[in-house]
Each structure stands twice: as structure tokens, then as C-alpha cells.
């Protein structure tokens, strides 16, 4: 056999980008299960529908860019985008919402920038933000957790869900929609959170569903940390800054601001902390940089949730911090071996 000449090293750790993405997909399973369990088939259908679209669009784009299709499809990054968007959309959002979202995510936010690794913004969050601004009604019509409805666990069958998503929205769906806790929070009037839960039994009953879903995401995140897919810096920094800020305000004016636990366990906080803020492509590079990146997201989430126009804020916070990532990179270079202090800036 002819000898070959190649550069060192000659050993390589098994695995590639595709396996990293598959691990991430695996880590979303608890969250997906929890969503399906509490909110019906909708989320699962959204995820599958999104994945299908994502693969097709990715293949099309790669083909148009004259790149080897199978090579690029097997990095599974499109699937991750689709799953994340699927988890973020309301379970009964019409099919075209997902179609628009995935098109924007894959074609505009990712492939137009040069494909995986070159996109400055998280594709799923770009799509989510765009959908939220464009179709506020569809995007804010969340299904109520089944537990809140009090009449059993399977109100909408698979078929009904499918028709709700792909055909005209049925009135049955309307009956199942309700505001999310964050919406309620926004329009709660003069109540404190404590009072709200006490006042509304239904809500008190249903909040557990949100907690459970957040816990599922948290589990997935811990799994990824264990697998060393990412470092602890970004999620911990984000959660910590959010907690610190909300605690501060909650302690100052408990009747005005919700408690930190509420912030951590509702909305997309956990999903964002472990699956969005840790997106390596669009976050800061160094460990120090990831800390600042996470802190920034945490602060922005709190600020937008508290004083902003939209109920949830993870998408906007992440996008804004994506903008800052290169800047953060320049000023958070690590101190290299043998250097007294780190370099700053780009020179």
C-alpha cells in the first residue's frame, strides 16, 4: 500500500460535527416529550413538519450553492434549527407559520450567510423573532396545558391536531388556547404573582406544566454539559444574571415584579439558556466571552420581559447579544501561556 504523507496529528478523536448535533437533538428529547405530554400532539407535529421542511430547504440551498448535498446534510444542523423552532412555536400554529419560519431560518439566516458556521445570528431565533413580529396573533395563541382544562388528558386527538394545523383552525382549538403565564403576568393588573396564583385556581393548577417543561429542558442541558458539548459559562451566566436582577427587583417591590423562580421556570428561559445561548456559531468564543454573552442575555431577557412590548424576550435578547459577540470576542481573549496579561482588541 502506498505510503501517504499528511500533516500531524495522526490521531483523531472519534466523532464529527454531525455527532455533536445528534447529541444536541438527543438532549431536546425530554423537552419535546414534556411539551407533547402537557400540550398535546401539536409540538411533535410542528417539530416533524419543521424537520421535513428544513431538510428539503437545506438540500435545495446546498444544491443551488453547488456543494455536495449529502456531506452538508449529515451535519444535522438544519434538524437542530427545525427542532428548536418547533419547540418554540405555539403547538397549534398553522402550517404556513412553520413554513415561513423555516424558510427564513434556513435560507436567509443560514445559507445566505455561507452555511453552517458562518451565520452571525441564530437561525431559529431569527425565524422566531420574524414570525413574532409578523404574525402576532398566531404566535401568541398558546394552547393551555391540558391539566388546566380539567376535563381529561386527551381533548384534541392526533387527527384533530393535524387538521387544526394543516386545515382551517377549528373552533376546538380556540377553546384550548389561552394566554401563557408571561401574558398573564403582563396583563395581571395590580396583583402580585402570589396573589395571582391564589386568585386563579386554574392558573395555579397549570403552572406546574410550565415548570415541568422547564425542568425537562434543564435536564437536557445538564446532559449536554456532561457530554462536554458546551461549557457551563453561557447558561450559568444567563440564569445567574436573570436571577440576580429579578431577585433584586422582587425584593424591592414584590407587588410589581414577579419572583425569580417565576422568571426561571416560565417562557423559554431554560430552552434559551441551554439550547440557544450555547449555540457555538453565534455566541462568543472564549470562556470569558461566553460569561459576558450569557450575562447580557440574562439582563436583556429581564429588561424586555419587564418593560418591553412582547411577552417573552429570549429571542430578542439572544439576537441582540449575537450582534455583540464579535465585540465581546475582541475584548475577552484569554491570557495565553507565558503572557503577563491578555491581548485586547484587534490591533
Amino acid at each position: 500500500m502506498a505510503l501517504i504523507r499528511i500533516t500531524s496529528p495522526h490521531a483523531h478523536r472519534p466523532g464529527n460535527t454531525g455527532s455533536v448535533m445528534l447529541t444536541v437533538l438527543m438532549a431536546t428529547l425530554p423537552g419535546l416529550a414534556a411539551m407533547t405530554f402537557f400540550f398535546g400532539w401539536g409540538t411533535l407535529i410542528q417539530v416533524l413538519w419543521g424537520s421535513l421542511l428544513a431538510i428539503a430547504l437545506e438540500a435545495l440551498s446546498v444544491k443551488l450553492r453547488r456543494r455536495p448535498v449529502s456531506f452538508y446534510l449529515t451535519d444535522y444542523s438544519a434538524l437542530v434549527t427545525a427542532v428548536l423552532l418547533g419547540l418554540a412555536l405555539p403547538p397549534f400554529a398553522p402550517w404556513w407559520v412553520m413554513a415561513v419560519g423555516i424558510s427564513v431560518a434556513i435560507i436567509i439566516a443560514k445559507q445566505l450567510y455561507g452555511g453552517m458556521g458562518s451565520n452571525p445570528f441564530n437561525p431559529a431565533m431569527v425565524a422566531y423573532a420574524l414570525l413574532l413580529v409578523s404574525f402576532p396573533i398566531q404566535m401568541t395563541s398558546w394552547t393551555a396545558p391540558f391539566v388546566m382544562l380539567g376535563d381529561g388528558w386527551s381533548v384534541l386527538s392526533l387527527g384533530e391536531t393535524l387538521s387544526a394545523i394543516f386545515a382551517t383552525p377549528s373552533t376546538a382549538v380556540d377553546a384550548h388556547t389561552m394566554a401563557t403565564p408571561l401574558d398573564i403576568m403582563r396583563h395581571r393588573g395590580g396583583f402580585t404573582t402570589e396573589e395571582m396564583w391564589v386568585n386563579d385556581a386554574l392558573l395555579a393548577n397549570g403552572i406546574g406544566a410550565w415548570h415541568a417543561v422547564s425542568a425537562a429542558y434543564f435536564m437536557g442541558g445538564v446532559f449536554l454539559l456532561y457530554k462536554k458539548i458546551f461549557t457551563w459559562h453561557a447558561p450559568v451566566a444567563m440564569l445567574t444574571s436573570l436571577t440576580v436582577l429579578s431577585t433584586l427587583f422582587f425584593l424591592l417591590m414584590p407587588d410589581q415584579y414577579p419572583d425569580p423562580f417565576f422568571h426561571l421556570t416560565t417562557g423559554a428561559t431554560m430552552l434559551g439558556a441551554f439550547f440557544i445561548a450555547t449555540d457555538p456559531v453565534t455566541s462568543a468564543t472564549s470562556n470569558k466571552g461566553k460569561l459576558w454573552f450569557g450575562i447580557g442575555i440574562g439582563i436583556l431577557v429581564f429588561v424586555i420581559r419587564t418593560w418591553g412590548n412582547y411577552p417573552d424576550a429570549v429571542a430578542f435578547a439572544v439576537l441582540l447579544m449575537n450582534l455583540c459577540a464579535p465585540f465581546i470576542d475582541q475584548y475577552t481573549q484569554p491570557r495565553s501561556y507565558g503572557h503577563a496579561k491578555p491581548n485586547r482588541g484587534m490591533k
Binding site: G115, S118, S283, T285, P334
Partner: peptide, 26 residues
């Protein structure tokens, strides 16, 4: 044989292992 290089996803794994504390991906 090493498979062809994929795009860098800036995962930062190189940075975690660099004994000279550099930013290899940068």
C-alpha cells in the same frame, strides 16, 4: 484517513484543550 474538513462551528473544543491557552478557532 481523516474525513474532509467540515465548516468550523466555533464549538470551542479546541480552546478547551489548548495547552498554550490560545483561541485556536480564531
Amino acid at each position: 484517513p481523516q474525513p474532509p474538513a467540515q465548516a468550523c462551528i466555533r464549538c470551542g473544543m479546541c480552546e478547551q484543550v489548548c495547552p498554550a491557552e490560545l483561541l485556536p478557532q480564531q
